[in-house]
Simulated assay, not measured.
Amino acid sequence: MARATGKSEAVYERLKSDIESLRLRPGAKLSEVQLSEELGASRTPVREAIRRLARDGLVDFVPGEVARVAAISLGGVRALFEFRMLLEPRAAASVATAGTGDERVLVPFRGLLERLEEFDASFRALDAAEQVRSYQEFYEVTEGFDQAVIAACRNPYLARTIRDLRGQTVRLRHLSHSGPRRMLTSLEEHRAMLKAITQGDAQAAEAACRHHLAQTLQALIDSLTSHDLALGVGVQVDIAG
């Protein structure tokens, strides 16, 4: 039983990574038989992994069909960000406040700020092709920031809710950073959030986080409505949503 559970976890992490990175496109079919062959696993851990991904909101079950990677719709993105704007600015403010009473809280954020400054200097020196190839490094910094906020947030319910939304938000990251210009804008937004937190300025941290989410939402809307975006049948551009 323990071995099956471990295999299910490995399959889950692999499929989750493929969905978040868009290697598995929105709307893609998830055949238990095909995935079992590709991943070298029996159908049981594959089935368990797909069910977990469905609970994460990353997989949809269509009656009469196999499971599919959940679609990305404009209405769904707006709803997600409306919820995130209620949660994440409050969490950022609480972390900044906690840091004024406990310097240990600020250690990871200071490290991330230093790493961000180093990335900024190297990124601007690259040509366009090299900049695109360096996106993953920036994703690692932003993921580190998000995880640091979750870890430092003193409200466990708030932290858990934000963590539970990570699968959705990580998948959209690849759409929101649609080019070097947006990358640099996002970098400035993360710099503002990190500086506010490390300075213990809760009001500025909350405002910077809200601004970042608003800008990210607009970038996603631009990507989802762009004729250059080819994400297949799983993207539903429902402007009224």
Rank of each mutant, 00 (worst) to 15 (best):
L106A: 09
R181L: 12
K7D: 11
A4V: 09
A41R: 06
Q215I: 00
C153E: 10
A70G: 01
L24D: 02
I197E: 03
R55H: 12
R25A: 10
S42T: 11
H212G: 01
I197C: 06
M183W: 00
E137D: 13
E48P: 00
S178L: 08
V66M: 11
L194Y: 05
A70T: 09
T5L: 14
Q34N: 08
R90H: 08
L194T: 02
E114P: 01
G232R: 07
L126G: 00
L116G: 08
A71F: 08
S186E: 15
E103A: 15
R55L: 12
V46S: 07
V11W: 14
V11A: 15
R182H: 10
A196D: 02
I221T: 10
F61H: 14
H211E: 13
I221H: 10
A202Y: 10
V77K: 06
R78G: 07
V69C: 07
D102Y: 04
A151E: 15
L126V: 01
T169Q: 08
T142C: 08
D228R: 15
S36R: 03
D120Q: 11
A96T: 05
L217P: 08
F119Y: 14
V141C: 05
V77G: 06
L112E: 04
E117T: 05
A67Q: 03
T169G: 02
R173M: 13
S42A: 15
A208C: 06
R78S: 03
L58A: 06
M183N: 08
L35V: 03
D228M: 08
E32M: 09
P108V: 04
D146R: 14
S226R: 09
L231H: 03
H174Q: 05
M85R: 15
E137M: 03
E118S: 14
L53Y: 08
A121L: 14
S31D: 12
V235P: 02
Q199A: 15
R84L: 15
M193F: 02
R133G: 06
L229W: 11
L165T: 11
H212R: 12
F119H: 13
T169R: 14
T5F: 11
A219R: 04
S223H: 04
T44H: 13
R182I: 10
F138W: 12
R171P: 05
S21C: 00
H177Q: 05
T185S: 12
G101K: 12
S73T: 12
V237P: 02
A41L: 06
G6P: 00
H174S: 02
T216W: 04
T185D: 12
M183E: 12
R191E: 02
A98L: 10
L126D: 03
L87D: 05
A92D: 14
T100S: 15
L53V: 01
Q168N: 11
S73I: 00
Y12A: 10
A159L: 09
E88S: 05
S17W: 01
V69D: 09
V149R: 09
V105P: 07
A151D: 15
E20N: 04
T142K: 13
E88C: 01
A128S: 11
A49L: 03
A148H: 10
E65P: 00
A204E: 14
R104E: 14
L80C: 03
R55W: 05
